[in-house]
Design a protein around this nucleic acid. Sequence first.
DNA 1: AGGCAGCGCAC
DNA 2: GTGCGC
DNA 3: GCCT
Length: 424
Amino acid sequence: GGGTGLGGGAALEDAAANQGLTVRAYIVDQFRKLSNAYRAGADKGTGARMHGSGRSDAREYHYKQVCAALEHLSDSPDWAELEAIGTQRHGVGGKTIAKLRELWDTGRLGRVDEFSNNPEQVARELLIKVHGIGQSRVVELVRQGVRTISDLRQRTDLSPQTSIWLKYHDQLEQPIPRDHIGEVRDRIGAVASRIDPRLKAIACGSYRRGKMESRDMDVMLILRGAGPGSTEHLEVMARIVPELHADGLLTDDLTTPGKFPQFGKKTAARVTTPSVVQAENSIAYMGICIVGGVHRRLDLRCYPEHQEAPALLHFTGSGDFNRFMSRAANARGFTLSELGLQPSVIKGPAERVPSGPHLELHSEAHIFEILRLEYKDPSERRDKIDVIDSTTGRPFFQTRESRTALPALTDTSRLQAHHPAAIT
DNA sequence: AGGCAGCGCAC
DNA sequence: GTGCGC
DNA sequence: GCCT
């Protein structure tokens, strides 16, 4: 390829330097902007049916893969290194290489400029950060003229969850210091063991991945001794949330913790809807707590002990890592979720159905082992390229050769021989 | 041409 | 069932 | 947008 002539890549180096970034960081930033733009419905906001309209989700996904690949470049890649990822990295194709070439030659991406010069697109990317405003609502709100958070506050048709979240908008945007999350876990753990001494609290999410700061708090409760068939863990949320309000930790609920809305005074849900009945047995809680005088988002979930390993894996993330690990599981003939791991097969169009029992999972490492994936410490679970095929030692989604399901492992009888206590 | 993770909760 | 969050 |  060209670009190795005099001054090749100078425009790119200048653009990066102007922002105080390495060339790699600048390139990743540009593609991350594309991913964010498509998440915010970049090709859905305009009435004109442009080419590719309606593929926002897939493109967001695509550009996330591209960012993962680009993260593995050197600080100052030459053109040969950039071009090489087109053949070396799964998910990077011709259009992406063309965009890299555009960056190399001009230091800019026309598509990014297009988006940042479009006030409606800028508004969509701002407003989609609000809790409860997703791609669908943001497109409609912006179409109706909403441009700023202030505009949004004027609306009378916001969901209760969105209204609550907006009350603390500025505080919720602030990063949470690591220490605060450990403190909240301990407070929840103390309250939990008063309710039932079998309960233990574990902080997951980016905290467990070792980050010094987090965007929210993710705490998991495990009911020790609870096995398959037990439903006791479903009653925990309705009992503990009122206690956490009384303790002064919780200030607002974004989900209904149970059938006692009088305890969660500011609960977002109404009293008589079917969802409240359903919420009697909820395993997932989302709310707002206050630590060190600052309001923070808190997610709380409760699982029986036999689901500890898959739940821990799932809620430790990252989200991208989960998606690609699940895809790897599918390719191996399994379905993976926070509830467990079980053999499954494709049946008909777009339908995957279980073909065997949930396996007994002793630990996170056990899950990696069954799937023949290299164990990754929580701090190493970042993206697609961290999902490693342990039979080759290479990223699961990097080779072009097709992979086969694991014959020995999709054979359920043999599986149960290896793991005699498979769970139905 | 179909798939891109899989689930719980609000509505 | 759709929208949303994780 | 890319893979199968």
